[in-house]
Design a protein around this nucleic acid. Structure first.
Lengths: 334, 334
DNA sequence: ATGAAAGCGCTAACAA
DNA sequence: TTGTTAGCGCTTTCAT
């Protein structure tokens, strides 16, 4: 069996406390004693039991990041940055994949691994309702990542509306008139609605009437859906001259489908996405995208959590709107 | 503060044991008692303390997956499948990012979070040596994912040699003669070496003499490196007519660079990668790739861990070679 | 069917 | 500088 503190203590002929001091660098230990203890630790292959430790002082050193799917590049890149940010606080990150399944998400909110986790970074998927958040009884500090919700917790938001609007305005600036939208829907979740409204308002502000048939609401924002959507768009009597994609994966599918149908990008159809995943630089044409400041998002979120853990449990929820910029590439003539 | 078992017990007027029975479905509890207890649990928002539980019976329900970088699509896709497989065993997956840093990897081997983790799935990065594995004292069950190593633990291997060879043979079958390799190196780690040797042997077997200047060893197998490598290849007096890329990200960079330099794929240069990440279907041209059976890898690995945890701690390390197939797409004329 | 008590490995408080 | 002890929340005998 694994060695414990008292095994080490016995073997080294010192008390448990002394070993604990050596391990944690607490208290004062004589140089000779320390050396002997360290040697025994080595001999016995002792390692502290994290469960016991966290049972004892209520902290585990683990935070969770719950995302809909880690296979999605955007979340993977975000996770990478969260892990790095968390490192600065000595935290390990447990990644939870909700698959945007409301049941799983509710479980996350209720703290399946509660007491194992010191804090929760939560990217809600599509279907969660404010009531679900209100029903949360778990007291683990939580930071929400993503769209505006009821003010139930600290949140680092990406302004979906502004993003959708900026993307669409870029297409308008290019002189496009028949601008389609794929992904976002007025009836969707907050992110979806936000992006959709930004799209609509940009059109209206430019004196273009939004056309229902140019809007393709999509459930899952993945490449194959982008392909399907474009195929439907191209079958219209008056196909679009630009496409606003609600995320980059959709856009990649769209680019591919446009090419397959002999449509030139950006000459015939300009394409813009959101997320700015790494791959955008290597698609052909490379993809113009709204680039949220992921590093800032990750660092802010982790920082907020750290803050809560330092004691400001009760203060009011805080909100941070993360910035973004438009990364212009070939798909819009950049 | 959070409610405990005894809080619930006191409030419900029963003993701690009874509450425990209700929570865990153990023992026999009268229907009336059960109902009362459940109501109190609800009222108090009680949730079991995982730390205490795992301290008690030595299991935490958490396994770790250590990968070089989750931002890499291949690992992200693998992680997604591991999480799904682990779910079947009631395990949560903690994802550890080593950044292929030997120090971090050694820490993982030594069990930084030992006692927090019931098992470890480890994808070693580039530089780890057999000695590092031999030096492992942590007894947490471990399954290695990746290339052949000293037989220190259970392992699910991808046969790098066979993969490199199959990819290269495909290019040879296309009638290509000047076949470059980017990424893999004879001096690299096991994966790198394996892929390189497979490449060489395929050439030799076909009566083609490997040319040193067509081999571009690369440290990090990411898109931008693929771009650089291709640029160097194109500056050769006799540029290649095919490129074997050690992974798909490199290949994406390569495709992009070839396009930028007006080289047609596959007419002038055929390209093949390894990993078969989702994006391959959407690149232009779509990318031919060696497709390891990721689901099988994930499930086998998790299954092996489950096995070890069930008790077969001492039996000899087992090895599984995961299968792969060649997914032919446009980049090689598919 | 339910209860009492011991102890998992650790740290914090207090003694020596 | 080092040692002793209580107890974190839970499960597990062993009683009742």
């Amino acid at each position: 069996m694994a060695a414990t503190l008292s095994d080490v203590a016995a073997r080294a002929g010192v008390s448990i406390k002394t070993v604990s001091n050596v391990v944690n660098g607490t208290g004062r230990v004589g140089a000779a004693t320390r050396e002997r203890v360290e040697q025994v630790i080595e001999e016995l292959g002792y390692r502290p039991n994290v469960s016991a430790r966290s049972l004892r002082h209520g902290r585990s050193g683990v935070i969770a990041l719950a995302v809909p799917e880690i296979g999605n590049q955007y979340f993977a890149e975000l996770a990478e940055l969260v892990v790095k940010a968390a490192e600065g606080y000595g935290w390990t990150v447990l990644i939870d994949q909700t698959e945007a399944d409301p049941d799983r998400e509710r479980l996350v909110l209720q703290g399946i691994r509660s007491h194992l986790i010191d804090g929760l970074l939560f990217v809600p998927g599509r279907m969660l309702k404010p009531a679900d958040f209100a029903a949360r009884t778990d007291t683990t500090p939580m930071v929400l990542l993503g769209e505006r919700m009821t003010r139930v917790a600290d949140r680092v938001a990406i302004d979906s509306y502004a993003a959708g609007r900026a993307a669409t305005e870029h297409l308008i600036d290019l002189g496009r008139k028949r601008i389609a939208s794929i992904g976002a829907a007025p009836s969707g979740d907050a992110v979806s609605r936000g992006r959709y409204e930004g799209y609509c308002d940009a059109l209206v502000a430019a004196g273009i009437r939004p056309a229902a048939r140019l809007v393709m609401p999509l459930r899952r924002w993945r490449q194959e859906k982008g392909v399907e959507a474009v195929e439907r768009l191209l079958s219209l009597s008056k196909p679009p001259d630009a496409i606003f994609c609600s995320n980059d994966l959709l856009a990649h599918g769209a680019l591919r489908a446009l090419y397959d149908h002999g449509v030139r990008v950006p000459e015939d159809v300009a394409v813009v996405g959101i997320d700015d995943i790494t791959e955008n630089r290597y698609t052909r044409p490379s993809l113009t995208s709204i680039a949220p400041d992921k590093r800032h998002i990750a660092e802010t979120a982790v920082g907020l959590l750290a803050d809560r853990l330092k004691g400001s449990f009760s203060s009011a929820p805080r909100e941070f709107i993360a910035g973004f910029h438009l990364e212009v590439r070939e798909s819009t003539g950049g």
